[in-house]
Simulated assay, not measured.
Amino acid sequence: MLTLVDLHTGDTITLAILDSLEIRDPYTLLAVHTGGELAAHGPTGGATAADSHAATLALDSTTLAATRPTPLHDPAATALPTTCWVDLPTDLAAALRPALDDARTAVLVLLDRTGGRLAAVGPFPTHATALGYQPHRYDGPGPDGRHITGTVWLHPDHGPWLRELANHAQPVWCTNWNHLAAEWIAPRLGLPATWQHVPVHAGGIRFGHQSKLSPLYAWTARRPLAVLDDEFGGKDPFAADQRTADGAPTLLRPVNPYHGLRRADIDAVLTWLRQL
């Protein structure tokens, strides 16, 4: 219990602090918006608590179409019981997509489009763990040369996906990590330490362009180039189109920064390579 006291008036309020990871009957409130966005709110203790949040959502959003309290399945369990699945109309199941403003949720929604159903799993301690990322402790020089310590989240699926790309193209690192990408990140993803890196001093958008692209274009010269990155400038697509028109096919594939690299990103590059 936590009691808050207003020092000027003497008014007090007592709150019960509930650890979301220790909820005995965890539920999430699924919210569907008119554009097909699906958001998960919670976790909460029980269906009634989850359902009570619907009125607040309706006041805050003009696009809310429907809500439904949904039980959370324990992520430590290896199989989903039949009772965890919620039936959906097939047209709704086909139209649903993640809401970007739901990126920090600790709930993972499994959507079976073919079967017209969904299930919710959680709670997870972080958004990264819900997506399958694993923490790696880093203690060494940072991109600017100063010593840093912290956690780097890496996804075990990314290594095999990138090795698959390497069967069709030459992968190179182009990141502020520079040589540390091959020396530190690569072995933790099961990637060879021999992949080259294009030296960059800083990333970010400057004058409408991702600053990493300039040294990458110079290194690539006239060869076809596909770039996977979570940040491009407003002028970058036009520059890529111009490179393509000048005989250097260029693909800029934006990676959703809230979810990181996904299989659809890899498939998009593979499809583009086959069309060259």
Rank of each mutant, 00 (worst) to 15 (best):
R163Y: 05
G190H: 08
R206C: 12
L191Q: 00
Q170T: 15
A166N: 00
P187L: 08
E164Y: 10
V172K: 07
T175Q: 02
P187F: 11
W173Y: 10
A169F: 11
H179N: 06
H168N: 11
F207N: 15
W195I: 04
L191M: 08
V200Q: 01
Q196Y: 14
N176G: 13
P187E: 09
E183P: 04
R188K: 12
H209K: 11
A182V: 01
E164H: 14
N176V: 11
P192H: 07
E183A: 13
W177Y: 14
G208D: 11
A182N: 02
G190P: 07
W173C: 00
P199L: 12
R163Q: 13
N176T: 14
P192W: 10
N176I: 11
H179C: 12
W173H: 01
R188E: 03
G203H: 09
H197V: 05
I185S: 00
G208S: 06
T194H: 14
H179M: 11
P192L: 04
L180P: 02
L191P: 02
A182S: 14
W195C: 02
W161Q: 01
L191C: 03
T175A: 13
A202F: 12
C174E: 01
W195D: 05
W184M: 06
L162Y: 00
W195V: 02
H201F: 15
A166E: 04
W177M: 08
G204C: 05
W195A: 04
R206E: 13
A181C: 06
W184D: 01
H201Q: 13
W161M: 10
E183I: 05
P160Q: 00
G190L: 10
G203C: 03
L162I: 12
N167I: 09
H168C: 13
A202E: 10
N178L: 10
H201S: 14
A169D: 06
F207C: 12
V200M: 02
V200F: 01
V198C: 03
A182E: 02
L162A: 01
P192M: 05
T175K: 07
H179F: 15
C174T: 06
G208E: 01
W184F: 06
L180D: 08
N178E: 10
L191Y: 02
N167G: 13
R206L: 15
P187Y: 15
A181T: 01
W177S: 09
Q196T: 15
P187W: 15
G208R: 13
P192G: 07
P199Q: 11
H201M: 12
N178D: 10
W161K: 00
L180M: 14
W161G: 00
F207H: 15
P199V: 05
A182L: 09
V198S: 07
G159F: 08
N178M: 08
A169E: 01
A202K: 13
P192V: 09
N167M: 15
A166P: 03
H179R: 15
A181I: 05
G203S: 04
N167K: 15
G204D: 03
